[in-house]
């Protein structure tokens, strides 16, 4: 890491931030800008790519390279950029509608390819920019403008989805917990390959208080599970709850007391992290945050770069082109 003497201020663009006052996005922006200098990467080598939605305005506010693209396609655009420019640090900023509805296909394929992207999914469980329709992470029965009788759609669990695509880095954090948010960003940035970070983000206009249960000091301790690599997974005001592996059963469950599992982000089989992801439901009753999974496998970028490198030939490109054009059954007319 190079000390470039950058500060958070260096990552603020000259654009006026136009989110609603009180939006959780402000906290995330400040956390990202505050954390960026730690990367030791010159600003010109950092690119933020986004899709459409409130969160996708993010690149305009970062004094790096940035592209505000079209709905759902940021992972595809960022894949082309990252694969052709492995020297860059490419970040995707997206929301629950952008990433999981219209862009669901691109998200899972970026993750399965393990493109070297840091994907920040701001999950507020609502469509904000289109003014308040339910999203693919809204709870079943959600009453919104487009579902006055309650939505009939079951929500995605974004982490389960990412793990199903065999994402190599999967984490969750919360907009209001700056320290935790930055520690997760740090781990994501350190990861080689796709890093998928779900950030619970409050939309104070259309879905205010969606995450209050795990934010409010009076309730959070009994519902929020802080995952720490190498530590037993326990929680509760008196640390009375344990996440255990039930004998003879699949997956994990929460119980009072008992022998808690010890969290290990390096478990190769995604089934472990998947089981952790299933602890959280729409009701947020037991919600793990932190890094679920952090494993290594070859990245798309390096595999592509290797193929190009292996094929690289010395010699004049013009001559190689002439050779290629002539590499067939040819005949000559005098």
């Amino acid at each position: 890491m190079v000390d470039l003497k950058l500060t958070a201020k260096d990552f603020k663009s000259d654009q006026e931030v136009r989110w609603c006052p009180g939006c959780g996005d402000y906290a995330i922006l400040a956390a990202v800008q505050g954390f960026m200098p730690e990367l030791g990467i010159p600003r010109e080598n950092i690119v933020f790519v986004s899709g459409i939605g409130c969160s996708s305005r993010f690149p305009y506010y970062m004094n790096t390279y940035g592209m505000h693209s079209i709905h759902g396609r940021a992972p595809a655009i960022a894949t082309g950029l990252s694969a052709s420019r492995p020297d860059l640090s490419v970040w995707v900023v997206t929301g629950d509608g952008d990433a999981l509805s219209i862009g669901g296909n691109h998200l899972i394929h970026a993750l399965r390819r393990n493109v070297n992207l840091k994907i920040l999914l701001f999950n507020n469980r609502i469509y904000g920019l289109t003014k308040g329709q339910y999203s693919p992470t809204s709870e079943l029965g959600k009453i919104t403008k487009s579902t006055p009788a309650g939505s009939a759609d079951s929500p995605f669990n974004p982490l389960s989805l990412a793990l199903g695509a065999e994402a190599t880095f999967v984490a969750r954090t919360i907009d209001s917990d700056r320290k935790h948010l930055q520690s997760v960003l740090r781990a994501a940035a350190d990861h080689q390959g796709s890093a998928f970070v779900e950030i619970y983000q409050n939309c104070n206009i259309f879905n205010d208080g969606a995450f209050e249960l795990i934010k409010d000091a009076s309730s959070r301790d009994d519902h929020l599970i802080r995952l720490e690599h190498g530590q037993p997974v326990t929680f509760g005001a008196d640390n009375q709850f344990s996440v255990v592996h039930p004998a003879g059963g699949f997956g994990l469950k929460v119980q009072e007391g008992g022998e808690a599992i010890v969290h290990d982000t390096s478990v190769d089989d995604p089934a472990y992290a998947f089981a952790l992801s299933r602890l959280s439901g729409s009701d947020l009753g037991t919600t793990p945050i932190g890094v679920f999974r952090d494993v290594q496998r070859p990245t798309y970028d390096e595999l592509i770069a290797k193929q190009l490198n292996d094929a690289r030939a010395d010699g004049s490109p013009d001559q190689m082109l002439d050779d290629l054009l002539n590499a067939a059954d040819t005949w000559t007319i005098l």
Partner: peptide
């Protein structure tokens, strides 16, 4: 790049052009 669909194919091409 054999992309996951036509939209990703052009998206990746555009991302590469940007780069």
């Amino acid at each position: 790049m054999q992309a996951e669909d036509e939209i990703a194919a052009i998206g990746a091409a555009l991302g590469a052009s940007y780069g």
